[in-house]
């Protein structure tokens, strides 16, 4: 395996075990689902449940490979990650998801826009939020009104573009 050139350190040893655990868990889930499906293979001899079982076995093999590799290679250092920007973006997406229906496309997407900008260092929300909402309104106008793509409308959209 050519993973030896790990001078920059891309993967800590713990990560291999963590991935292995995830893969094994995913494998268990697939196996459970595969086994609980009554075989309806008919003439093919392969039913709905067989592919999940096959994938589950492969996932376990991969989990075993990860464990083996983690033990052999030990830990590598990961480039420093800043948690705050990630939280900003995920928070922006979550807000858009929750506010899309009640507040409409433009405000929800404007918030996502401002959060993303904040994640990249533009923290002055009184500037980025109006820009985001304005931009989203233009997008709404073009796609919903002009091109008939169905986007959720809210107070702002109804106010500007009419009901």
């Amino acid at each position: 395996m050519s993973d030896q050139k790990n001078a920059d350190g891309r993967r800590p040893g713990g990560a291999a075990f963590f991935v292995a655990a995830l893969l094994a868990a995913l494998g268990c889930l697939l196996l459970w689902q595969g086994l609980s499906i009554p075989d309806k293979g008919g003439y093919a001899g392969i039913g709905s449940g067989d592919l999940p079982i096959f994938i589950a076995i492969c996932l376990w093999l991969l989990a075993a490979a990860h464990v083996w590799k983690g033990m052999r290679e030990g830990s590598h250092r990961l480039p420093r990650q800043e948690p705050l920007p990630v939280l900003f973006i995920v928070g922006g997406l979550a807000m858009q998801l929750i506010l899309l229906k009640p507040l409409g496309f433009s405000i929800a997407s404007g918030l996502l826009f401002a959060c993303t900008a904040a994640a990249f260092g533009k923290r002055r929300i009184h500037i980025s939020l109006p820009i985001g909402i304005g931009f989203a309104l233009v997008v709404y106008g073009v796609f919903d009104r002009l091109l008939q793509l169905n986007l959720p409308a809210g107070v702002l959209e109804n106010l500007i573009f009419g009901g």
Binding site: Q96, S109, L112, F113, A119, G132, F135
Partner: peptide
């Protein structure tokens, strides 16, 4: 970058919202 990625995410979600605006999809 702040504006570029903010724009990318807005359009990335636009496609999903336009086709299937369900919370599950988002």
């Amino acid at each position: 970058r702040p504006w570029l990625y903010a724009g990318i995410l807005l359009f990335a979600t636009l496609g999903t919202i336009g086709v299937n605006p369900s919370p599950v999809e988002l």
